[in-house]
Amino acid sequence: MNANKALWEKGDFTKIAQVMRQSGTALVATLGITKDLSILDLGCGDGTTALPEAALGATVLGVDIAGNLVAAGNERAKAAGLSNCSFQEGDAAALVDLKDKTFDLVVSIFGAMFAPRPFDVAKEMVRVTKPGGRIVMGNWIPGDPTLVAQILKISSAYTPPPPEGFISPMLWGVPDNVTERFVQADVPKENINCSKDSFTFNAPYAPSQLLNNFKNYYGPTMNAFEAAEKNGKAAELQQELEALFNSQNKSGDNNTTSITATFLRVTVTR
């Protein structure tokens, strides 16, 4: 079993994605999408950005390594009546089913950053983008004090060290690394732009419930709790994450959640 596939099929990311819909739609609204565009949404999950892209009239293909999320995305597109949006399984580092220069826009929001072999991921995204087209990535930033970077940092402290040669997905949140990867994929340096942006998790329930969803349905957090249980440190991990979620909630109400996380927005012009 592909370890990355196993990680993202382990839980049920749709439970997390439900609190990301509003910001996903808002982000898509900034991409200048028109009806004539062909879009690849890479590491698409169940379509948090793919469905809003299709709702604007573009033809959208969502590709994700997790079969359960692909199935969920196709169900959501069908329920929304979006015949211009479809999902299929695929690996961001080897898009073997996709031809060169196929898409006007490649979007990957917190998706392709988690695929191994980042230089291959950059090459594949560039390969399938038409000349004059764009690539837009959203990547979490290492060491950032906001929610997701901290969840991943805390979780990593409780899990066994990664295998030799492992490249942290968080390096996609470092502009110099992003530039190096796309330059090696033959993109001129001046065509690569990085800026900070924000994404808000909005939930009609308490931060403790959102943490519970991460604990039960988000692969990296699930792995951290499994490892912590074995080491007798599950209560410690729970405490750390509870403090994080509660301190970052800006809803003004303990029964609802609104947590904003900072990410690196990458725009590459082909």
Rank of each mutant, 00 (worst) to 15 (best):
L211F: 13
C194L: 03
N231H: 11
K233T: 08
E190N: 14
P207F: 00
P204F: 09
D186S: 13
I192A: 01
L210M: 14
N191P: 02
Y205W: 12
S195W: 10
D197E: 15
G219A: 07
P207V: 03
F225M: 10
Y218P: 00
F201W: 14
N223W: 07
N231G: 12
N216Y: 07
A228G: 03
S195L: 12
N216R: 10
S195G: 08
Y218K: 02
A227Y: 09
A235G: 09
E226V: 04
D197W: 13
N191F: 02
N191K: 15
N193Y: 10
A234T: 08
S198A: 13
A228P: 01
A203P: 08
A203K: 06
K196L: 13
F225L: 03
L211C: 03
K233D: 03
Y218C: 06
E229K: 12
D197V: 00
G232D: 09
E226S: 10
P220N: 13
G219R: 01
F201Y: 15
P207R: 02
A228Y: 08
N231W: 00
F214V: 04
A228Q: 06
P204S: 11
K215D: 06
N202M: 13
G232Q: 08
S208P: 05
E236R: 04
S195N: 11
G219Q: 08
A227D: 10
F199E: 07
S195Q: 14
Y218N: 05
D186E: 13
G232S: 07
N202Q: 14
F199G: 05
K230D: 06
C194M: 03
E190R: 05
D197S: 15
A234N: 06
P204Y: 09
A228I: 02
K196R: 13
P188Y: 01
N191Y: 03
A185Q: 06
T200P: 02
F201Q: 10
A224N: 01
T200S: 15
A206L: 01
A206T: 07
N216W: 01
S198Q: 13
A206K: 06
K189R: 15
N223G: 08
Y217L: 04
G232L: 02
S195C: 11
D186Y: 10
E190L: 05
D186T: 02
N212F: 05
Y217W: 10
A185S: 06
N231P: 00
N213L: 14
A224E: 05
S195R: 14
N193S: 14
Y217F: 11
A224D: 03
Y217V: 02
E226I: 02
N216M: 09
